[in-house]
Every structure is written in C-alpha cells, then in structure tokens.
C-alpha cells in the first residue's frame, strides 16, 4: 500500500524567488503531520503542489502513489484541501456551493446529504445555509471551505492554516474532526502558525525554512534534539529567529 504522501527534493521558483529548495518529507498513514514555518517559508506552495493546483519545477511528489501533475484528477479525488486563500464562489450560498462540489465529485446523493447535514450542524452553519457567501464573515466562510473539503470523506486531508478566523468552539470541533479522521484510517497534513495546536494534535512536525526542511520529528523528539521546552522555542531555534526575536522584544520593552 503506497504511503499517503511522499515529497522528495521539491523545487519551485517564482521568477527569481526560490520558494522551495529541495524540500523532502514523508507523511505516513494515520498520522497528523504539521508543517510549520515562518511566513514565506514555502508552506502554501508545497500544499498547492501536493493538491495538484500548482506545477512544480523539479522533484517528486506522490499522493497514494499518484503524481499530482500527471494524475491530478485522481489526487484531487483522494484529498480534501482547505486552502489558506478561500476558494469559493462568493455569489453562491453554502447550500449551492455544496451541491456543486458534491455533483462534481460524483457523490452518492444520500451520502452527500448525510455528510452535509452532519457537518453543517457540527459547524453551526444552519442559519447561513441560504445566505450568499459574499455576505458571510471570514470565519463562516472558512467553515464553508472546510465542509466542502470534507464532503467526500477524503483519505488525505490537506489543510492550510485551517484554524484562522475560527472561534474556540469551532477550533475544538475541527480538532475533533481531525482526530476522528485519523481514527477512521485517514491521514492529515496541515500547516499552521498556532504552535499550541500543532503541539497538541500533531503526531509529527516538519519545520521548513527558506524552502527546506530544517527539522522533523515528534514534538518530544524535537524537544530533546534542540533542547527546548516547547514547540515555539524549537521553531525559533531551528529557524534561527530566536536571537532576533529576543532583540526585538527588548527594543519594544524600552520604547513601550
């Protein structure tokens, strides 16, 4: 059985800017892999390539043995992707958007109905079900985006900053969904800036910096490796930002 995700020596540039510089990592079945990195580290580019939205310049990507640039449709049917930049039709209502997604994915009517009802109730989206997406708040739009990625029970969930804009209740539900998804044999790959979330739910963490993987392992492994007390400290140490952050905080203490 092929692994959910293999990324090897991945390269991608935008003009003269190198976004990915030989990124390599693997996501095992049943794991929750957290991709961490500072802004501009290449997280979104990586997730877009994995999801078949963006072409890579070099390297290898395999999702359950399928290459997204060759078998894009197959990969898209296996994954559920929640992008950071919401990909919704703003003039549609959530109901109409879910109908479109379910139809294009060729889902069974009863199954899609059940999933939508369950998820809409879980995310407390009922009262916005028939409101145009353009009129919804950022957090509510994020809920629509998440539900549309979950409708087809994907094997691999790819989430780019999934907790942005969500309230505490929804974050807790989202964490529950991620855990349940893994319990049912699925796999999760997500990027986040929220260290606490990554620390609590990730079975493995990969930290990328300037398009390269600079550290990888479970939170416990990384804590021992870089002699840090928590994930935030690990993150700052391996990305070389610890000294700079201390200096800035000291400067702020003086001026504030």
């Amino acid at each position: 059985m092929p692994k959910p995700l293999i990324v090897e020596e991945l390269y991608k540039s935008y003009g003269n800017v190198r976004a990915l510089d030989g990124l390599t990592f693997t996501v095992d079945k049943g794991s929750i892999y957290g991709l961490l990195g500072p802004n501009g580290a290449g997280k979104t580019t990586t997730l877009n390539i994995i999801s078949g939205i963006l072409d890579r310049d070099g390297g290898k990507v395999q999702v359950y043995g399928f290459d997204p640039s060759i078998d894009g449709r197959k990969v898209k049917s296996l994954i559920g992707y929640v992008p950071e930049e919401q990909a919704l039709y703003e003039s549609l209502t959530p109901r109409e958007f879910f109908e479109f997604v379910a139809s294009v994915r060729g889902l069974d009517k009863d199954l899609a109905q059940r999933r939508v009802k369950l998820l809409v109730e879980a995310f407390d989206l009922q009262k916005y079900f028939d409101s145009p997406i353009i009129s919804l708040s950022m957090g509510t739009r994020q809920k629509v985006s998440i539900i549309s990625a979950l409708i087809h029970s994907p094997r691999l969930l790819v989430l780019d900053e999934p907790f942005v804009g969500l309230d505490a209740r929804t974050v807790a539900i989202m964490k529950g969904i991620i855990r349940e998804h893994v319990k049912n044999g699925g796999t999760v790959l997500f990027s986040t800036h929220i260290m606490e979330v990554a620390e609590k739910i990730c079975t493995k963490v990969g930290i990328i910096h300037k398009g390269r993987l600079v550290a990888e392992g479970s939170v416990e492994e990384l804590t021992g490796m870089v002699k840090a007390s928590d994930l935030e400290e690990i993150f700052l140490k391996v990305t070389g930002e610890e000294d700079e952050v201390s200096r800035i905080i000291a400067g702020l203490e003086e001026s504030l």
């Binding site: 109908e99 379910a102 139809s103 889902l107 939508v116 009922q126 009262k127 028939d130 409101s131």
Partner: peptide, 14 residues
C-alpha cells in the same frame, strides 16, 4: 439571506 431555519438538504446531480 434566507429566512427561517432552512432544510439542510442538497440536490446532487451529475
């Protein structure tokens, strides 16, 4: 938006 509590049903087509 829509008024009242909507029926949480969707129409799936080809």
């Amino acid at each position: 938006g829509g008024i009242g509590k909507p029926q949480l049903s969707i129409t799936v087509t080809n």
